[in-house]
Simulated assay, not measured.
Amino acid sequence: MIRVQAVVTGAVQGVGFRWATRREAARLAVAGFVRNRPDGSVEVEVEGDPDAVGQLVRWLEKGPPAAQVRRVQVDGRPPQGTTGFEVVEDA
């Protein structure tokens, strides 16, 4: 099990990015959260099987159809045993 934090920049707020991320996370059976940040980016923390986490990170590089992803910065985090994936209030 691994956990990563991904910060996605570009035109990623107001385009359904968080809800699409939640659907993709459910499909991949990974845990964590997604939220908007005040600087206009979207933050995702995801935990689970390394292959599934990698698939979600690759999905974040494109995002939903209306998004225009410029960059995804990924950093490792210690696994927390999180279950479920949620959209949380803005940071």
Rank of each mutant, 00 (worst) to 15 (best):
A52Y: 10
W59N: 12
A11H: 14
Q55H: 08
R18K: 13
D51A: 15
A20T: 12
V44M: 09
V53T: 05
A25H: 07
V69A: 06
P50N: 11
E47H: 05
V42H: 04
A31H: 07
P38I: 10
A67T: 01
E47F: 05
A52C: 05
T9I: 00
D39C: 08
F33H: 15
W59D: 10
V46P: 03
A11D: 08
A26L: 15
A31L: 12
V44Y: 09
G32C: 07
P38N: 09
W59R: 12
Q55F: 00
R22H: 12
V53C: 02
G63C: 07
V7N: 09
V15L: 06
V7Q: 13
P64H: 12
A25S: 11
R37K: 12
V7Y: 03
V42P: 06
A67P: 03
Q13N: 10
Q13F: 03
R18W: 06
Q68F: 00
P50H: 05
E47W: 03
V15I: 13
S41C: 05
A29N: 14
R23G: 08
N36E: 11
L28Y: 11
N36F: 05
G16W: 07
L56R: 11
P64K: 12
E24I: 04
V15K: 07
R18G: 09
P65S: 05
W19R: 15
R23M: 10
V30D: 00
A26Q: 15
Q13E: 08
V44S: 13
A20F: 08
A11V: 13
P38G: 08
T9V: 04
V30M: 10
Q55E: 14
A52N: 06
E61I: 01
T21Q: 05
D39H: 09
R22I: 05
W19H: 14
